[in-house]
């Protein structure tokens, strides 16, 4: 379980509070107007932004003392997810060892992850020669290899078209079935939230609201969400 215990995130005029839990193994979409603090919320879990107050706990353990690399978290950002000078294989392998030196078993695991995301023949390609969808797949392969219980996606597919995005979300869902990881995904498209088929956290007016079923919430949106959906 991921718990926000009276968390307050502050930066200048910006202030966001969060006080709720996310069930282990669930899939949660995070939606809200731009600037509301969706990315900041994820950054706080990832260890890039220290809460002014409150605690963020994973399975009852306070995450504060852990550096970003030591948290039980795999993260995919909006862009710059791949190192341009490394191949798809090397980028994915970073999830296992930052040094990139793998033994036979680990090599096999990375290759397996690439196969799972449909990049079996692309191991030696560099990001510049991959399409947008393939780049996302490579980042997902790394996420798989990282094998962390908490997966944070910060609008990673924002640059892709609707069909490709639906395909990626389906892929993410199928990958999570095998890893049983907990997912938080920032998106600005209600269709993504529905496709994810889990909960929805609305971030608006300085509050990250507790999660509830995405489908039901989108069918009968409360005021804050209605305003955003327009």
């Amino acid at each position: 379980m991921l718990t926000f215990e009276q968390v307050v995130l502050e930066q200048g005029d910006f202030r966001l509070t969060a006080d709720f839990s996310v069930t282990r193994g669930s899939r949660t979409a995070v939606m809200g107007p731009s600037g509301a603090g969706k990315s900041t919320l994820l950054a706080a879990i990832g260890g890039f932004f220290a809460p002014a107050q409150g605690r963020i706990l994973w399975q009852g353990t306070d995450l504060e003392a852990l550096s970003p690399g030591k948290r039980p978290v795999a993260m995919i950002f909006q862009d710059n997810n791949l190192f341009p000078h490394l191949t798809a294989f090397e980028n994915a392998a970073l999830g296992l060892r930052p040094s990139g030196r793998l033994n036979t078993k680990e090599t096999a695991r990375v290759q397996d992850a690439l196969a799972q995301v449909g990049l079996a023949g692309f191991a030696t390609r560099k990001p510049a020669t991959l399409s947008g969808g393939q780049q996302s797949r490579a980042a997902l392969a790394r996420m798989l290899v990282q094998d962390r219980p908490l997966v944070l996606l910060d609008e990673p597919f924002a640059a892709l078209g609707p069909a490709l995005r639906a395909e990626m979300i389906a892929l993410v869902k199928s990958l999570l079935v095998s890893t049983r990881a907990t997912l938080l995904m920032v998106t600005h498209d209600p269709a993504d939230a529905r496709a994810l088929g889990g909960d929805l956290v609305v971030v608006a007016d300085g509050v990250a609201h507790p999660p509830s079923l995405a489908g039901a919430l989108l069918d009968a949106p409360p005021a804050a969400l209605r305003e955003y959906l327009g």
Binding site: S67, P68, G69, G95, S99
Partner: peptide, 27 residues
């Protein structure tokens, strides 16, 4: 600023960060 967070979240520090990220990017 571009890759620092990614590297942090992957736990790339010390020599690994230097040889796998910084030096190749500064070529």
């Amino acid at each position: 600023s571009r890759f620092g967070r990614l590297a942090d979240s992957l736990g790339m520090t010390g020599t690994a960060r230097l040889t796998r990220l910084t030096l190749p990017r500064l070529r």
